[in-house]
Structures are given as C-alpha cells and as structure tokens.
Amino acid sequence: MTQQGQRATINGREIDISEGETILEAAAMVGVAVPILCHDERVTPSATCRVCVVKVEGRRLPIAACAQKIEPGMTVVTEDDDLSTWRKGIIELTLSELGGGACLSCEMHGPCDLHALAAEVGAEPGALRGATSAGPKLDDSNPFILRDYDQCIFCYRCTRVCGEHEQAHAIGPAGRGFASIIATSFDGGLMDSPCTFCGQCIQTCPTGALLDRRMIELLKDEGAIR
C-alpha cells in the first residue's frame, strides 16, 4: 500500500514508495532498472553477487538494492561512474573464476544473464586471471538436467528457487568457497531426490551452468553447437 507522504528519491526523482518494498522494486516501479545477477524476484534475496549495489545518501558503503528495504526520505543513486567501475570489476572477477571468461564464447541456446551483463558494463573477459572455482563435474545421470560446474558462479539462484518457489528442496549448497558445489540433499542423483524436474533451476540460472540435456544433445547433433 502506498502510504500518504511516503516518498523517497531515486536518481534525483521523487517517487512514492510502499511499505516493505526493496530499493530494487521501488526503482523498477518507476522504470529504473538496476542490474542484477544473483537475484530472482520470486525468492529471498541473497545479496551475494553485489552487482546491484547502489549509493544511499548518508551511508559510507554501497548497498545491495535487492535486499535493502527502501525507507521514507531515502536518497538513492543507481547509476554513476563509481558504480559502473564497481560493477565492471565484479563481473570481471566473476568471469575470471570461470576460467578467464572463456564462457563468453560459449554458444548457449538462450540469453545468458552474465554474458548480457558483461556486455552492458563493458567487462573485459580475461581482465583478471585467478584461480578458477571449477569443481568436479557432478555425474548425474538424470535425463533432463545437465550441470556444468565450470560455468557456475555460485549465486544460489537454483537452490533458492528449488527450495522456496518449487518447495522441492532437492538441491542445496555443499562445501564452502572454491570447493563448494551444488548438490542434492543426500548427495545422490537427482532421480533419487525429491526433484520434480520442474526445470525452474535451469530457467533461473544466470549462466550456462544448468541446461536442458536433450536440447544440448539435439543442437549438437544438428551441428549447431560444439
């Protein structure tokens, strides 16, 4: 509900705000798109990727717009040189963890959020070289979902959508840091898990880490991808 007198400022523009709304949501209401990577509006924000950071007057550090509730009188800036540099740095770091940005040349079937975002912020693939987080590939023989850890940025969109939206609780994070992987609750195959094969993890994944196995096979057969 919009309450009388509940207003805030985004990019110099005064706007009406609603109780409980995040900065991201309030901005979207007035047509300001803040870039996101680890966020899916249907589930609780995790604020792990920090691509959506914005400046809030009176705060020293930039704040993740996906998780921060907007407050009356708040003055927010979603776009300036500092933020662009910051976002570019984050994307480049993320890419570096995917093997120096090799994934930018991947010929995925659909739009890859990470790929699109890299173009948007002008991130250079291979700008940073670092350890890659690629864990072992999970040998999961289910016929539906192909998981490629080399492309995973550990944003946990898949696990949150599975748990909070589908409420199947089939997958979750396992391990920490570079050794972390996404695994089924009991570490068995998806076929033996509570997975309903709704495919929503594939659809929310912002990279090519989760794919429809048959689609990839069909496209390979046709010579459309390598």
Partner: peptide, 22 residues
C-alpha cells in the same frame, strides 16, 4: 528442441512443471 518459460505470463510468471518444460 526445447522450452523456455514465458516470464510475462500472469498465470505462471516464469514457472513450468516437468510436462511443460520437458
């Protein structure tokens, strides 16, 4: 060759189930 959800659908808002998806 495959299916992606229609995120603009007011009914499903990006969701599908195993039959629709696969």
């Amino acid at each position: 060759v495959g299916v992606t959800p229609d995120w603009s659908s007011p009914v499903s808002e990006g969701a599908l189930c195993v039959k629709g998806q696969f």
